[in-house]
Design a protein around this nucleic acid. Structure first.
Lengths: 156, 156
DNA sequence: ATATAACTAGTGTATATACACCTATAAGGA
DNA sequence: TCCTTATAGGTGTATATACACTAGTTATAT
């Protein structure tokens, strides 16, 4: 009688790649990120930076910590990811009056313009992805991804 | 009559985060990666490095380029990701006899041991993820992720 | 046989990500 | 009030990721 997990031993490492959640997630992330980067390249905005601009716009003036938690992003990672956008003058991070510890992120008018100009390229990437995957699969997967982000980040 | 894409203008940036494929994929990736890192920490192997070890074991001696293509990973990224594993003596990259351009990656016995020791922690992470998401959703999502990686990497 | 094209790989640079550690400020209790 | 604790944030370091560029090797065409 073989053990249930016998297929995960050294002689069946190909099975690991086939069923590993984190591997398949990261692999798909790379593929989709590469596609979005290619399509959005003419806009001069990286997809990761685009989502930061959109998140800042959506959340209004927001502290680093709150934004990081919302994005399931380490706080220090967010600090660093904001740097290139600050340097380009697309957003500003300023101290909060009521709490000298906190700093709030906001878009500048230049950042708003940049975001607006990038949206058509992002829509193009969205449409090409939908075309490639089919609406049904894509909508289902995004719903599953949301659930995954919520359920697993609760465990950490 | 409003345009179909009207909800993606500057006044509805919250919609962008809700429907953006690359954002939701990366966010879920971060959440799951964080969970795997926490669970696998005692093994001393990062989940990304674990998958590289398993892929090397599965693909046998394999050139950098072929491995990169298989993993939907930029070739130069793979070169750099192999570095810490080489440094620890878990794998070696050697020149190929027949083609002086190519270099092949193989596990060392130390790498095989390390992989074997890490598998139980990986199984634990796999099980906890399955528990959190439910088998049906997880299996469906992984199938969708595979399809996504294949379909979008073909477009680039 | 040689010139050119195609292929394989590495480096420099930049962004993305997170942990350990540190500093400063706010909140709360003795 | 003052001491302790909790909270908000930044830096140093390391890995993950990709592009532009470079160098060497093999294949191909004339």
């Amino acid at each position: 009688m073989t053990k249930l997990n016998a297929r995960f031993d050294l002689n069946h490492c190909d099975e690991i790649g086939k069923v590993c959640t984190v591997f398949n997630l990261r692999k798909a992330s790379r593929a989709v990120t590469q596609l979005y980067e290619e399509i959005m390249r003419p806009s001069g905005t990286l997809p990761t930076q685009f989502t930061l601009l959109a998140a800042t716009r959506a959340m209004g003036p927001v502290t680093i910590s709150r934004m990081a938690k919302e994005l399931v992003l380490d706080r220090t990672t967010l600090t660093r990811n904001l740097k290139p956008l600050e340097r380009e003058g697309l957003l500003i991070v300023v101290c909060v009056k009521d709490d000298q510890r906190s700093r709030e992120v906001s878009l500048t008018s230049k950042g708003i313009r940049k975001l607006e100009e990038s949206i058509p390229y992002w829509i193009d990437a969205q449409n090409k992805t939908r075309q490639a995957l089919g609406s049904e699969r894509l909508d289902r997967m995004i719903a599953d991804l949301k659930r995954t982000a919520g359920a697993t980040s609760d465990l950490v």
